[in-house]
């Protein structure tokens, strides 16, 4: 099964098995990864599962839709490779990537 490494702000890494077809958020939630709050459960409306992808992986994905792109403009610590992990669907191409979890998620 493809794996993804979640890197915390302090540098610690956790390896997560992500079945193909699952979102990164779903697997991170299942394994209780710190910093992936995912309050809306995958609706791309709360902006609390923000991660930074490696550049090569980011470019393999389609562009974020309007709503996700708008949320990514207001999340803390945005970067050019920011995505909501609930919108990143696992494929073999993304296997073994390292995604960075920000220190803070969007909060009302």
């Amino acid at each position: 099964m493809p794996e993804v490494f979640f890197v915390q702000p302090d540098g610690t890494e956790q390896c997560v098995d992500v079945p193909a077809g699952w979102s990164l958020m779903e697997a991170a939630r299942r394994d209780g990864i710190d910093g992936i709050v995912a309050e809306c459960g995958g609706g791309a409306i709360c902006g609390t599962c923000h991660v930074h992808l490696p550049e090569d992986c980011y470019s393999k994905l389609g562009a974020p839709d309007f709503t996700e792109a708008a949320l990514l403009e207001i999340v803390p610590e945005p970067s050019p490779t920011s995505r909501l992990s609930c919108q990143v669907i696992m494929t073999d191409e993304l296997a073994s990537m390292r995604v960075r979890v920000p220190a803070e998620q969007l909060n009302l």
């Binding site: 699952w22 299942r30 394994d31 209780g32 459960g41």
Partner: peptide, 29 residues
């Protein structure tokens, strides 16, 4: 998770496994 029970799960676009809040191993850990 409960919200998908009337949405994605009912639509058949996700399965019960994907709704788990945490894995069994995660509680144990």
């Amino acid at each position: 998770q409960r919200p998908p029970l009337s949405k994605a799960l009912l639509a058949g676009s996700t399965d019960a496994q994907r709704l788990a809040l945490r894995s069994v191993e995660t509680y144990q850990k």
